[in-house]
Amino acid sequence: GEPGIGKSTLFLQNGLLIKQLKVLYISGEESEQQIKMRADRLKISNDNFYLLTETDTNIIFKEIKKLKPELVIVDSIQTIQSNLIDSSAGTVSQIRECAASFQRFAKETNTPVFLIGHITKDGAIAGPKILEHMVDTVLQFEGDRHYAYRILRTLKNRFGSTSELGIYEMSGAGMRVVTNPSEILIAQREEVLSGSAIAAALEGMRPLLIEVQALVTPSVYGTPQRTVTGFDLRRLQLLLAVLEKRGGFQFGLKDVFVNIAGGIKIEDPSTDLAVICALLSSYEDNPLPKNICFAGEVGLNGEIRAVNRIEQRIAEAQKLGFEKIIVSKFNKKSFDPKAFSIQVIALSRVDEVYQQLF
């Protein structure tokens, strides 16, 4: 994860909460006083939790032999150094050697080891791909530091599914698990305004209802702007091209801004339909009904394509009190509309959606 996102807080909190295991927290980044200050803020007491501030692998493994911990947390692998190699901590050879020694220890003694790692400017794990290949599971902690919400994603998992997802809220007393993120992501809607649509998306295994905001304004400069937050820019350009070609809307003369509310990044193609409806709503300056949401991928011919796990999405929309959901006609075989109290409208083309809404 990024600096300051809450990696150390998350692991310190979980280490203190696991009272039945002997936990060793190795910190090469912070002093005992700093960690003590954070632990005081978390207000969790645990007599089975041990702290070692050390960067030399020789000393670390001597202490591990003496203590025999049942869980080891290393914060962070980029600060740990092996004297077998003559390079500074954080270099590729040091990371490879230190990760390999922790891996040997983990496999030989059957002790779980968590390595906290830095990431580069692009968001990749620092120390090319070697660290990702060596470990069994890669968890990426992401979110915007300006928002309170953090997402823990699985990128690789040798023990199970990679579609698991954890959502946390950062507070003064540590990380709080968010059990129903949909309510938070669409909570701040009072009056009905144009350019806002709700998408029934999936993040991993978890259905999420998110608010898509769009703003379409006449272009003042020569080249129209295309600005996105939390959504793929190329995907937006593709959807605008579909609306120009298949719907005859003059987006080529307009500035277009799209924002996924709540500071989360979304990669699920099923948000296409909500993005298109938000764009049309802003273009026409006509608000969408408050009780409707969308789930569908949009193809280049303006057709609405089927999306996976449609039943979960419909159930989530129903749970949050929506009265209608627009889905793809090609999803009809995957669910029974009678099983839901919400009205499911199945359409096959974008122009049908436009007629239905406006």
Rank of each mutant, 00 (worst) to 15 (best):
E164T: 02
F249E: 06
E169W: 04
R189T: 13
E191G: 10
G15I: 04
G262I: 02
Q78I: 14
P128T: 08
I186A: 04
L236V: 06
V220C: 12
L357H: 02
M205N: 14
K7C: 00
I85N: 06
L253E: 12
L208W: 04
G172C: 08
V242N: 02
L236S: 02
S281K: 00
S82E: 11
Y221T: 13
L67V: 08
I210Y: 02
E211K: 09
A187Y: 13
F251S: 00
G321E: 12
I260G: 01
I345T: 04
Q103I: 11
Q312P: 05
L300P: 03
K66T: 13
F340A: 05
P337C: 05
T162C: 07
A126Q: 03
K245S: 08
I73H: 01
S8G: 07
G204F: 10
I85S: 06
C98V: 06
R313C: 12
Q13G: 00
N58Q: 14
Q343H: 11
K22P: 10
I80V: 15
Q356P: 04
E190D: 09
S348P: 06
F249C: 09
L320T: 09
F257A: 04
K62C: 06
S328D: 05
N291I: 07
G28S: 05
A89L: 15
I186L: 10
A339C: 12
E142F: 00
F257W: 09
F141C: 00
F11V: 07
G204A: 09
D272C: 07
T179G: 07
F322E: 04
V220W: 06
N259H: 05
L193S: 13
D86H: 15
K290I: 11
E132A: 04
L215S: 02
I151P: 05
G117W: 01
G90P: 09
R38E: 07
F358I: 10
N259D: 08
S163E: 15
A173H: 12
K121Q: 01
P69S: 07
A346I: 13
L209C: 11
I260H: 01
N83R: 11
V220M: 14
I60V: 03
L185M: 08
T111F: 11
R145S: 01
R41A: 10
G296K: 03
A339G: 13
Q188M: 15
N180K: 08
L42M: 12
E32Y: 15
E97W: 00
I77M: 10
T271M: 14
L240R: 02
T53I: 08
N301H: 12
F358D: 08
A278L: 09
L21Y: 09
S219Y: 03
E70L: 15
V307R: 02
F11T: 09
E191K: 12
K324F: 07
N259G: 03
D136W: 05
P218C: 10
G299V: 09
G299R: 12
L42R: 05
E311P: 04
N14I: 11
V138A: 02
L17M: 14
L52T: 03
N46Q: 02
G172F: 13
I125R: 00
A214V: 03
D272S: 01
K62S: 12
Q140V: 10
R41F: 04
A200D: 06
L67K: 04
S194P: 15
S182P: 09
L300G: 01
V74D: 03
Q78L: 15
Q103T: 14
Q103L: 14
V344N: 01
Q34C: 10
V138E: 01
Y221V: 10
P224N: 08
E284I: 10
